[in-house]
Amino acid sequence: MIELIDVGKVYHASAGDHRALEGVNLRIEDGDIFGIIGESGAGKSTLVRLLNLLERPTEGRIIIDGSDITDYQGRELRELRANIGMIFQNFALFQQRTVLQNVTFPLEVRGGKKEANAKRAHELLRLVSLDDKASRYPSELSGGQQQRVAIARALANEPHYMLCDEATSALDSRTTVQVLDLLAHINAELGVTMVVITHSLDVAKRVCNRIAVIDEGHIVEEGKTADVFANPQSDVTRELLDWGYKRTDTPDGKEEVVRD
């Protein structure tokens, strides 16, 4: 379980302070696929980076599995991160490593034996149906394939949690559905708790059992996905929904891809 207690984040810069998050309280239960929805610049990318301390909160505490991780450093921090896989909007695959070497990277940094790492990587590549591409390089793969490699890499250390930062924003709608179904499958089969950052209601609707809506650094609404969609409590959510319906009601059903 992940708990955020009164979490805030202020960026200090010579041009002045910028507040990215304020008073965020969240509880993400084991087994959840928890969506965090908001417009570009709402603070959702910062929020997800707090969970594995890629960014440090300037206020509040972050509790994971009962331990306060807010001030973790060094080895403790690296152990924590091994338990939290992460995938990214632009996939962030290592271009000079093969698909297999990408998947073994998180194992390598923890010092596993080479053969054992490769064996584990092949298992994961079979899970994402890409074992035949093991010796290829990322530049030879499609976007959807690259994100599946990134998913396999994120699972290498058998994490309990997985953070997905706009993981489907760079993909077309068909590939998006495939990747989302894969995430749902991993959640169901391996019990990996997921935190899904997205600006897309369609993404949230398809995979998330709970969602939180974030706007200008504040959580404005949180609850079961079905409840939030059926009975939105905040203006921001209603606006998101209106916009979402208008958008998906277009006759050709095409989805526009928005990058942060």
């Binding site: 890629l54 921090l77 962030a92 290592f94």
Partner: peptide, 21 residues
């Protein structure tokens, strides 16, 4: 950033990511 998220140390990032890439 991705390498950090997998628990790589700074030295590992220099050797395995920066120099390699």
């Amino acid at each position: 950033e991705a390498a950090h998220s997998f628990g790589a140390s700074n030295m590992q990032i220099i050797m395995k990511v920066m120099l390699k890439e």
